[in-house]
Simulated scan of single mutants.
Amino acid sequence: MPSLVSIVASLFGALVIWSGTLGTCRAEVLITEQEARLPNDLQGEAEVRSITRAPTIAFVAPGNTAATQVPFPLVIRLSPHGGARIDPASVRVTYLKLPNIDLTDRLRPYLSPTGIAMPEAIVPAGTHVLKVDVTDSDGRRASARIYVTAESSPK
């Protein structure tokens, strides 16, 4: 269980990343209407979890609890363990559609060793499943699915 200090430090780090992009803040399309209409890729929906020192991938914002208005801040925290480091070049974000859509280049300007902080993401209304893959400097890999539910598209 993470300590209060590590949680506060992680949230502060995400805030610093996010605020650092505010000078050039403008809503950007993360997923297009055409991409959202493609069939979902349901392969491998179940994830196997075990005790490991692999990096932790945490979906910070907008969160998994409710639908969110568009545009919204997309914040994903990447936490290495055991003295390892996250190499931003190892991070891959895939939209799970048929065929899969690599969103990594769209998110690259918002990527750092501590995570992804996109101030204003635009996606169509509905639920979108993203797969985040990362490898740390010790070669340990982690993967997580993130579910983003958008209530309505921008006008």
Rank of each mutant, 00 (worst) to 15 (best):
M1D: 14
P2S: 13
L4W: 11
L4S: 12
S6W: 07
S6P: 02
V8I: 13
V8T: 10
S10D: 06
L11S: 04
L11T: 01
F12Q: 07
F12H: 09
G13H: 04
G13K: 02
A14G: 06
A14Q: 11
L15W: 08
V16K: 11
V16E: 02
I17L: 13
S19L: 14
T21M: 06
L22W: 15
T24Y: 10
T24V: 04
C25Y: 11
C25L: 13
A27W: 07
E28D: 11
V29E: 14
I31K: 09
I31W: 04
E33V: 12
E33R: 15
A36F: 01
A36P: 05
A36S: 15
R37W: 03
P39R: 12
N40G: 12
N40C: 11
D41E: 14
Q43D: 13
E47A: 09
E47L: 13
V48C: 02
S50F: 09
S50T: 10
I51W: 11
P55E: 10
P55H: 08
T56P: 00
T56S: 13
I57W: 09
I57C: 08
F59Y: 14
A66G: 03
Q69Y: 03
Q69F: 01
V70L: 00
F72S: 02
F72M: 06
P73Y: 08
P73W: 06
P73M: 05
I76R: 01
R77Q: 13
R77K: 06
G82Q: 12
A84L: 06
A84P: 04
A84Q: 10
I86Y: 04
I86E: 01
D87K: 02
P88V: 00
P88Q: 04
A89S: 15
A89H: 07
Y95F: 15
L96D: 05
K97W: 04
L98E: 15
L98Y: 09
N100Q: 14
N100A: 15
I101N: 09
I101K: 08
D102G: 11
D102P: 11
L103D: 09
T104V: 07
T104D: 12
T104W: 02
D105R: 04
D105E: 15
L107T: 06
R108I: 01
R108Y: 03
S112W: 00
S112I: 00
P113D: 11
T114H: 05
I116D: 01
A117L: 01
M118C: 07
P119C: 03
P119R: 01
E120G: 03
V123I: 08
P124Q: 11
A125M: 09
T127F: 02
V129Q: 11
D133R: 15
D133E: 11
D133V: 03
S137R: 03
D138T: 05
G139Q: 10
R140Q: 13
A142L: 07
S143R: 15
S143L: 10
S143G: 14
R145L: 15
R145T: 06
Y147K: 09
V148G: 02
T149F: 00
T149M: 07
E151P: 00
S152A: 15
K155W: 05
K155A: 15
